[in-house]
Design a protein around this nucleic acid. Structure first.
Length: 537
RNA sequence: GGUCCGAUAGCUCAGUCGGUAGAGCAAAUGGCUUUUAACCAUUGGGUCCCAGGUUCGAGUCCUGGUCGGAUCACCA
C-alpha cells in the first residue's frame, strides 16, 4: 500500500502556491509560523477565558450607542465627528485589548475582520503604527518588517493582535492594532463568501470548511451551519437539564451487544477477536434501560447513538441520536404529558419560541393533539375499511404524512408492539403512542410490559415472525426475560429521535444537515490512477 | 434498485441555432490606505466529468459509463 504524498491530500494550484510562498516569507520574518499560544484578554489584565469582545458589556454599551446614532442617519451618511470622538474617549479608557482569530475578510487595505469563535470584530492596521511580534520565544518586537508581514497574511490565516478600541468614521467598533502576531496558516483558500459551499457532498464531507463558510457568509437563508449545530447543542442540553431537574439519572449502556434487540431493525455486525464472538452495534438501549428499572433506578435516561443497517434517506442516517428514558409507576398517558411538557420547555429554550416555521408550515408546539390510530385514518381516509390486518398500513399510507402539527397517535396494535403492555380495556391494543410532527415519527413510547411470562411469549411470537422471513422481527433476549422475573415496577418509557427534532427546529429538510459528520460513501480519488483493487466484478 | 435533473476556471455560475471558452468572486503585480459582500488598473488561470459516435467542425447532438442531487419503495 502506498502512502499518499502531502500534495495529493492537500490540493495545489496557483492560489495554494501563493499561500505557501507567503508562508515561507513569513517564516523568515517571524520565525515559528505555528507558535504554541497567544494569551487573549478582552480587556487589559483579564484572563484568557474572555473572548467575544463585542459581547463585553462596556463595549456592547458603546456599540449600542453608536447603533442608535446610526439608525437616525440616511444611507451613506456618517455619524457626527463629535459623537464619534466622545465614544472614542470612552473606548480608549478601556485600555489595551488582546484578541485572536481567523481573518474572515481578504487582507486588502488596512481593515480586516477577525472572528474569534463568538463574534466578528474589525481590526485596523496602519503602516508605521504597529509592530510585528516575532515568534522566537522572546516576543521580540520588529518595527521594520511589520508592514511587510501584514502583506503576507492571507484570507483565513490566524493572527493575534494587541491594540486599543475605537470607532471608525462609519461607526464600527474596531481594534487599532499596535502589535501583530502571526498564529497559524490557512494553506487552502477560504470558501466563497457569498454562496458558501454549494455542493452538499463537500459541505458534509468537509464540515470544517462548511463551518468556516458559515462564519464568512455575508447573506444566508435561515440558520448558518454553525447556528444549526448551536441549536442542536441547546436542545440537547435543555432536554438533559429538564430530565435532571425531574430526578432522572443519566446512564450508559452497551453499544456493542451480543444481541440486537429492543427495536425492529437490521443491525450492524462485528466481531470480537479475543472472545471470538459476534457482536452487534445496538439498535436500541431499551432492554438495558429496563434492566436498570428492575435494579431500582426509577428514572433513567440515556442520550446517545443507535445504529441501524438500513437505507439512507433525508430522514434516516445509519447512526442517529436517540433520547430514551423510563419512569417507574408511570403509564403511557403520564408519559405523553411529561413528553409534552419537556418538549415545550426545551424548544422554548433552544428556539426561543413554541412556534417554528418548517418548510412553509408553522408548527405550534404549544398544543399536542392525541388521536387514536383508527380515528386518524378515518379523518384522512373516511372511505377506508379498517381491519386488524390493514390498520397500520392504512395509517402509514393515508394518515401519517398529514400529521403536521404535533400529534400523539395512540392505540397501536399489540402485534407490532412486543415490548408494550396491552390496554386494560382492549387486549388487542397496546398502550403505546407515537409522536408525529410534519409527517415524521419523532417519538415512540409505551407502558412497559413487565410480566416476564407474557414477554417471553411475545418474544416467541417475534421469533416465529423471524422464521417466516421478517428480518426485523425481534430476537429473544433470555437475560431480559430473567431480569423481568426479578420484578419490574409498572413503568413507562419513550424514545425521542433527536436528529429529527433538530431538523424541525432548524428548518432543515435533510437529517444530514443536522449531523456534523453524516454517513457518506468513501471519498473517491479525482484521478483514479490505474486502480489496483476495483476490478473484482 | 426505478424515475427525473445535474457535472464548464480555486469558488458561484452563464454559454443562444453545432462555428475562436465567458462573467463575478478568489489569486498575482502595481496604486490607494477610516473600509462595510464587491476601492482602481493590469495579468495569469480550462482534460468543458470519462469513453466512443455523428459532423468539415461538438461545451452544445447521440450512445454507454462515472459521480452527485431530488424523488419513490424499505426503515426511526
Amino acid at each position: 500500500m502506498s502512502i499518499p504524498q502531502f500534495d495529493e491530500i492537500v490540493e495545489t494550484n496557483d492560489q495554494t502556491e501563493a499561500r505557501r510562498e507567503h508562508l515561507e516569507s513569513l517564516r523568515a520574518l517571524v520565525g515559528n509560523v505555528y507558535p504554541n499560544k497567544f494569551v487573549r484578554s478582552a480587556i487589559s489584565g483579564a484572563d484568557d477565558t474572555i473572548s467575544g469582545l463585542l459581547r463585553y458589556e462596556p463595549v456592547v454599551a458603546i456599540a449600542d450607542e453608536m447603533a442608535s446614532v446610526k439608525a437616525g442617519l440616511k444611507d451613506g451618511e456618517r455619524p457626527p465627528a463629535e459623537i464619534k470622538d466622545a465614544l472614542n474617549e470612552k473606548l480608549k479608557a478601556l485600555g489595551t485589548v488582546r484578541i485572536a482569530g481567523r481573518l474572515t475578510t481578504p487582507p486588502r487595505g488596512n481593515f480586516v475582520h477577525l472572528t474569534d469563535g463568538i463574534a466578528k470584530l474589525q481590526i485596523y492596521c496602519k503602516k508605521n503604527t504597529f509592530a510585528l511580534i516575532k515568534n522566537d520565544g522572546e516576543d521580540t518586537r520588529d518595527e521594520e518588517n511589520a508592514w511587510a508581514a501584514w502583506g503576507l497574511i492571507d484570507h483565513g490565516d490566524f493572527v493575534g493582535v494587541e491594540g486599543y478600541l475605537f470607532v471608525t468614521n462609519t461607526g464600527e467598533v474596531s481594534v487599532h492594532v499596535e502589535k501583530l502576531q502571526f498564529l497559524a496558516k490557512a494553506m487552502l483558500p477560504m470558501p466563497d463568501k457569498m454562496h458558501g459551499i454549494s455542493d452538499p457532498e463537500i459541505r458534509q464531507r468537509r464540515r470544517y470548511a462548511d463551518l468556516i463558510a458559515s462564519s464568512l457568509q455575508v447573506e444566508h437563508d435561515g440558520l448558518t451551519t454553525r447556528e444549526v449545530f448551536e441549536t442542536r447543542a441547546k436542545v440537547i442540553s435543555s432536554l438533559r437539564r429538564f430530565l435532571e431537574d425531574h430526578g432522572y439519572i443519566e446512564v450508559e449502556t452497551p453499544m456493542l451487544t451480543p444481541k440486537a434487540t429492543g427495536a425492529a431493525a437490521k443491525p450492524f455486525k462485528t466481531h470480537h477477536n479475543a472472545l471470538d464472538i459476534d457482536l452487534y452495534a445496538r439498535i436500541a438501549p431499551e432492554l438495558y434501560l429496563k434492566r436498570l428499572v428492575v435494579g431500582g433506578f426509577e428514572k433513567v435516561y440515556e442520550l446517545n447513538r443507535n445504529f441501524r443497517n438500513e437505507g439512507i434517506s433525508f430522514k434516516h442516517n445509519p447512526e442517529f441520536t436517540m433520547l430514551e428514558f423510563y419512569c417507574a409507576y408511570m403509564d403511557v398517558n403520564g408519559m405523553m404529558d411529561f413528553c409534552e411538557e419537556m418538549m415545550r420547555e426545551s424548544i422554548q429554550r433552544a428556539a426561543g419560541s413554541l412556534k417554528v416555521s418548517y418548510e412553509g408550515n408553522e408548527i405550534d408546539f404549544s398544543k399536542f393533539e392525541r388521536i387514536r390510530m383508527r380515528d386518524a385514518i378515518r379523518r384522512y381516509a373516511p372511505e377506508a375499511e379498517i381491519n386488524d390486518t390493514n390498520i397500520v398500513e392504512l395509517f402509514e399510507e393515508r394518515a401519517e404524512s398529514n400529521l403536521i402539527q404535533p400529534t400523539f397517535i395512540v392505540d397501536y396494535p399489540k402485534s407490532i408492539s412486543p415490548l408494550s403492555k396491552a390496554s386494560p380495556q382492549n387486549p388487542q391494543v397496546a398502550e403505546r403512542f407515537e409522536l408525529f410532527i410534519n409527517g415524521m415519527e419523532v417519538a415512540n413510547g409505551f407502558s412497559e410490559l413487565n410480566d416476564p411470562k407474557e414477554q417471553y411469549e411475545r418474544f416467541v411470537d417475534q421469533m416465529s415472525e423471524r422464521e417466516r422471513g421478517d428480518e426485523e422481527a425481534m430476537v429473544l433476549d433470555e437475560d431480559y426475560v430473567r431480569a423481568l422475573s426479578y420484578g419490574m415496577p409498572p413503568a413507562a418509557g419513550i424514545g425521542i429521535g433527536i436528529d429529527r427534532l433538530v431538523m424541525l427546529l432548524t428548518n432543515k429538510h435533510s437529517i444530514r444537515d443536522v449531523i456534523l459528520f453524516p454517513h457518506l460513501r468513501p471519498e473517491r480519488k479525482a484521478n483514479v490512477a490505474e486502480s489496483d483493487d476495483e476490478s473484482t466484478e
